[in-house]
């Protein structure tokens, strides 16, 4: 049942995905409204799906797919939050494709619970790391949009005046705020995750790809927050850092599929 709801959500997000591609080439007020409604509807289905999963007794992130579904949901929540504050749907250009991809993977099939009983019962402590991931993603999206808008403004094309993008400083704020919001969650998630791992295995294997990559991502994340706070790095430099952290995050996530620590059910 949960999977069915998720597939409904996926259908709604698909409209958002189409919007993301169309928005790059032309501006349509109507379409952005349609995409927004579709996305809200998708979130409702998504929420129902997650709730059912939770009620069914599985721990929500006990399989990688469920985790992806949860992450997608957080990303959408961020998108909506930004819409409420800044009245812009343009982050959707980045958020929608990612959310669609995550939901798509999660909606393909039911996955057996991968984590051991112990970790899955304690592991929920680390669940807020998903918020950190979602924030990082939004921040990455914002830095891409920042670059795009900066280039348009510098190109001095008349098109820059009628673009769908919000003002440069607004994009900047969106990026910085989500960065600030996500950092504590990310840190807390990593800490609790490590504590759970230590109490299970007695030690942390720093050579495990998952742990290594998560750590790397966290370091880049910290550098981003620091450079931004200290010397106001934005634009190109911030975008480079953000893409770096984003790539690290994706690889860290993908490591779920081949890490020895995170997959020990077998």
């Amino acid at each position: 049942m949960s999977l069915l709801w998720l597939r409904f959500a996926l259908a709604c997000y698909f409209i958002g995905l189409v919007y993301a591609f169309v928005a790059l080439s032309r501006t349509s007020e109507l379409f952005s409204r349609v995409a927004l409604h579709a996305a809200s509807l998708g979130m409702v289905f998504h929420f129902v799906s997650l709730t059912e999963l939770f009620l069914s007794g599985h721990v929500v992130w006990a399989s990688v797919h469920n985790g992806e579904s949860l992450l997608a949901f957080f990303c959408m929540s961020f998108f909506m939050l930004i819409y409420v504050i800044y009245h812009t749907t343009s982050p959707g250009v980045v958020v929608f494709p990612v959310v669609f991809f995550l939901t798509f993977v999660a909606a393909v099939d039911e996955q057996p619970v991968l984590l051991t009983q112990y970790v899955s019962s304690k592991g929920w402590l680390a669940a807020h790391i998903f918020i950190g991931y979602a924030a990082l993603l939004v921040s990455f999206g914002a830095s891409l949009l920042y670059l795009l808008q900066e280039r348009r403004l510098k190109a001095k094309k008349s098109a820059s005046l009628i673009s769908f993008l919000p003002a440069l400083e607004v994009i900047d704020q969106i990026g910085y705020r989500s960065l600030l919001l996500g950092f504590p969650f990310m840190t807390l998630g990593l800490l609790t995750g490590s504590v759970v791992a230590i109490s299970t295995y007695g030690r942390l294997d720093f050579l495990d790809p998952k742990i290594l990559l998560s750590l790397l991502m966290w370091v880049v994340y910290m550098v981003m927050v620091f450079t931004r706070w200290n010397s106001g790095w934005r634009g190109r430099r911030a975008a480079v850092l953000a893409s770096f952290a984003f790539v690290a995050a994706i690889v860290a996530w993908a490591a779920n599929y081949f890490s020895t620590i995170h997959r020990f059910a077998s």
Binding site: S160, I162, S163, L168, E169
Partner: peptide, 20 residues
């Protein structure tokens, strides 16, 4: 929908950069 004079173009550009 859009303004024409140089001064208002300047304002519009400033808004594209600073938002408000």
């Amino acid at each position: 929908s859009s303004s024409v004079s140089i001064a208002s173009v300047a304002v519009e550009l400033a808004k594209k950069i600073f938002g408000t």
